[in-house]
Design a protein around this nucleic acid. Structure first.
Lengths: 159, 159
DNA sequence: TGGCGATTCGTTATAACATAACAGGACACG
DNA sequence: CGTGTCCTGTTATGTTATAACGAATCGCCA
């Protein structure tokens, strides 16, 4: 369905769609997409990049809302907990989910040159992790997979 | 060659061997395994678990050495940079490499119950990551792979 | 042998990331 | 209309990591 994250695409559309999906999902599951939570999700969608919690805080404040760190972290806990956003452990940063609604164990590509982050297909990776872990008799709940490297356009620019 | 990390094994032996490997590798490559660096590596090997930088600092201080955060972080930069230790991004913690000398892209298993960490075989995982990334025309330098779950003995204890 | 550069280390301070704890408000439900 | 639950505001603090600068050491070589 979706652009790779390194490709250009219709921002407005993808943002509106993600928000709508979040609203529908919350309605269906009885979750409260409150103003704060929605606001943080909107910022992540609009910026379309990995942002630190304090980056988000700066944006909230620039928009004239008084806010403190716990406000942001609480919103992020909700969004991450319900799959509307993800945390990038390598960057201590957060990003809106590229496939909200779809059940997935996210895997990320992080371009060291331009800083862009994309979700990549993770079925094969999850499978490989399960297999390797199973060999040590370990049951995996969740796997952090974050690959760093260079995206196509940055390789092109370097050449 | 090596125990899984969840298995019991001869600590003294694995520690001595790892230290010797580090010394030989440094000698061969012209790297300086200074007292500080060696000290931090020894602590990581002895404790045989993931430790925060400030945990290491506490141990150094308990041993009577005045030390400040940069001292520890510099030693860790060296050890991680040359493959004698790894950083666990998920935990913001560090652990001695279980296979020093062998070239490898480490993948980890983190038991949420007992906190133990093991390196797991990563060939299949690296392959899967490359494949997925290649599909988006992305070249991977390095992949963080950290799976959380439950090890065998903790599952046994829970049952 | 004396200066030079490179590397390491000590130290102070501060930046960046994250949470504890408690009070108050909104709202549903009996 | 009381009570419990969930969410938010606020203050303070805890945890992780780095910037910046100066001094010590050591190899190199003119």
């Amino acid at each position: 369905m979706t652009a790779s994250g390194f490709d250009t695409h219709d921002h407005g559309h993808c943002m509106a769609q993600a928000l709508q999906t979040a609203e529908e999902t919350c309605a269906r599951k009885g979750l409260q997409l409150t103003a704060q939570r929605r606001r943080v999700l909107e910022i992540l969608l609009r910026e379309h990049r990995a942002m630190g919690a304090y980056d988000l805080l700066d944006v909230l404040r620039a928009d004239g809302l008084g806010a403190q760190p716990p406000t942001v972290y609480r919103a992020l806990d909700f969004l991450v907990g319900h799959g509307f956003a993800h945390k990038l452990e390598r960057l201590n940063a957060f990003i809106a989910c590229a496939h909200p609604g779809e059940r997935h164990a996210p895997s990320f590509l992080i371009c060291k040159s331009c800083g862009l982050v994309a979700e990549m297909p993770s079925e094969g990776i999850s499978q490989a992790v399960m297999t390797a872990a199973g060999g040590l008799d370990f049951v995996v709940d969740r796997a952090v997979v974050e690959a760093e490297g260079t995206c196509r356009s940055c390789r092109g620019a370097a050449a």
